[in-house]
Amino acid sequence: MALDTGRLVTDIRACSQNVAEPQPGACGYTIEVHLSPDQVQECARSMYDHGMYLVFITAVHVSPVPEVLYQFAHFDTPCRVLVRTSVQSDGKLPSIAPVYRGADWHEREIHDFYGIVFEGHPHLKPLIFAREDRKMRPLLKRDELVKERSALWPDETGLTAPESDDAGR
């Protein structure tokens, strides 16, 4: 079942206008999407309907709020989608575990490393750490080392300018 990339882009644009297609040789992914936290579950459902598999979920500690990244790819057609979203101001984010059951373990790992709480996750208990270390949050950087978002992703990455102000930033 090959992927219809055009329809995928259309469906993603229905979730969020902030979609870019950078050069694949440059950064390794073919489509880049910026979402606000409430659009995450809709986007994940749309990815699942197109048959994209979950590659990884990770987070980056930038100020003012950490950013969570999801990567999806397809088995039959080469297409990698990187989805970015910022955590809500209360440190929570909707979980995609109801759609992608494999996200269960990835989100538990991010909860261990960063302390981000995923709402709707069936059992958000420590995955890699023992119970006594669950508050350690090792991948959060010290205050003097945290950088602004713009230091990592300056505007000339080829993204179209957002039409409206992205919530959560």
Partner: peptide
């Protein structure tokens, strides 16, 4: 500054590294 992903086929599956740089020698993520 910027990020890349690179994927290779390991013996067990798809090995992907995600590196985010910030202008210094040390990766930020």
């Amino acid at each position: 500054p910027g990020d890349v992903t690179s994927t290779t086929e390991g013996a067990r599956g798809d090995v992907t590294y995600y590196v985010a740089g910030d202008g210094t020698e040390t990766p930020y993520r």
